[in-house]
Design a binder for these strands. Structure first.
Lengths: 314, 314
DNA sequence: TAAGTTTGAGCACATTTGTTACTTAATAGA
DNA sequence: TCTATTAAGTAACAAATGTGCTCAAACTTA
């Protein structure tokens, strides 16, 4: 009893002097009349007993914590989480994600020779936020072919050329549709020189900037009628939950294998994994599950997402 | 701008990993990809910018802080402040102060040969809270003489014998009143062998346990009619604000010099200061000013008081 | 493009903190 | 009263942290 009271007071005194008055342990020892090693021990006890607590306080703390958690869990090259507080519009968040991705690209620009580009909203924002600069010795490569004739703004070929103009760099074009009329046509295209070299170039990029698609029914494919209702149902029945660089995958991240899949032209998920650095960009919490699938299957190495996605994953 | 954002995020990450995830700086350095020395520097900045804060939290924190503040300001041997929260009765607080003083005495018991005892409520509680034990080679010495015939409970001689019984120790008696009928009588008494040897013994104690008196009009002297109304006024006019071991002093701690003072028999404040260790015990915020005078004039070396006094002083 | 400026890594060293082994003093129990 | 046990100090060492310096790379500015 006596002992406890004394001990407790000792803990308190040491903690106050050390943490609040910024003494070092030697000064504390002298002030409270115990040996220096004992102060060290006492302070450890004070920590253990939560007599002293640390608070890291900052408006961005939650976001940074999410970044650290993602980083640690998935061993990523880099992660940035964009805050979605204050009811920022999805457009503003997308711009910010694009900006961070663009900065990231700039940072690694002199370490890469070829940059692969996917398609979709996120990649489009990424290109839009890229500043003009000079990177003559870099080649921009589309990872997927064209898709229909309209809405070119989000297509890989279009984004590739836009980015190449900004970087004053070389670029390739993927002269093929993503989806062929039949499996046979797809195979023939793949065998053609143009397409096979495009595919080869896509496989060999040093870094890839991609997005990930939504649930089939909510996807751009379906919304813009690139796939029919029948095809949508076929994919859903096969378990498809989304797509990445023109590969539909199921909840486990496995590529869907069916008639429809045979009509797709592009690099496979396995080939995507071989790319040294795959940068995934995503905005909107409806993408959380698919982003998580990308991470769990080690498909991506670098991540730029918004807070809502990060929170759902963590 | 860019730089600041990056920096800030770096600060945050380092702080979170170091303080919340208990990494060491080397681990933090690896986790956020900077050099170890930089983590050290970054963490210091985080502290400076109050990005990270320490909280020492404990129910007794306020009391311990008061003790530390008193200790540091007045370079005391030992200080204990008794909490007055929860509306504890003054009696309970007095008991606690007495108990702590008694423990302190026990702690220093084998380092002293003689113990001086004052009078009053606080000293009375101190004696009451002392446990029975054996200290044959110690002598208990009264620091002041007797006073009237009644209310012996708080008189030095009485307290001395009571304490001596508990410690099975030797003790002295002060065969004289504190206040003589006239200055002349006082002088004669001081010249007598009995009184002069009592005074000598009082001067030579190794440690003194004393209280301090209230404002003259609120003092035990006045309340119990040991001094007349006329004498009270005389003292007040001379600037007296209280007394210690039968010495009235003013707000600066100077001994009052007048006719009344000449009638007092006992050791002087100067002599009190010469005692190696003067332990002051006090309870009740009305004593705060006089306790502070004791401290400011370096009359006491050890302090056992309640929270209300400590708060008024600090 | 080139020179100046800034930043931070890398290294070496100083200081502080953590830990261990040994010794002493106090405490409790037989 | 003596022994066993515990607690804490001392001293030495190990680990972590703090700090100054130099150098190289990146960024500015002319």
């Amino acid at each position: 009893m006596t002992n406890e009271i004394v001990d407790h007071e000792l803990l308190l005194k040491a903690a106050i002097l050390y943490y609040e008055q910024n003494m070092n342990q030697e000064q504390v020892a002298k002030a409270i009349g115990v040996s220096r090693p004992r102060v060290s021990k006492v302070l450890q006890i004070a920590k253990q007993e939560h007599l002293v607590e640390f608070f890291v306080k900052d408006v961005n703390k939650d976001v940074v914590e999410l970044e650290l958690a993602l980083q640690q869990r998935y061993a990523l090259n880099d992660v940035k989480v964009v805050s979605t507080r204050y009811d920022r519009s999805e457009e503003a968040v997308s711009n910010q994600v694009g900006l961070l991705s663009a900065r990231y690209m700039r940072k690694i620009l002199d370490q890469v020779k070829t940059i692969g580009i996917g398609w979709g909203n996120a990649v489009s924002h990424f290109v839009a936020e890229t500043n003009y600069l000079i990177a003559n010795d870099v080649t921009i490569v589309p990872l997927v072919g064209g898709l229909g004739l309209v809405n070119l703004d989000v297509h890989a070929n279009r984004l590739v050329s836009e980015l190449a103009i900004k970087l004053r760099s070389q670029y390739c074009t993927f002269y093929a549709p993503v989806i062929a009329e039949s499996a046979q046509v797809a195979q023939e295209l793949k065998n053609s020189t143009l397409v096979s070299s495009a595919l080869k170039a896509a496989r060999d990029v040093d870094v890839a900037f991609i997005g990930v698609g939504n649930e089939v029914r909510d996807s751009t494919w379906h919304k813009l009628n690139y796939i029919t209702e029948a095809e949508t149902e076929e994919l859903e029945e096969a378990g498809a939950v989304g797509d990445v660089v023109a590969n539909f995958f199921d909840a486990e991240g496995n590529t869907i294998k069916n008639d429809f899949a045979d009509r797709l032209i592009g690099i496979t998920i396995e080939e995507l994994k071989e790319i040294p650095n795959v940068v995934l960009m995503a905005v909107g919490k409806q993408k959380a599950r698919n982003v998580k699938i990308m991470l769990d299957n080690h498909i991506v190495n670098t991540l730029f997402i918004d807070q809502s996605i990060a929170e759902k994953i963590i």
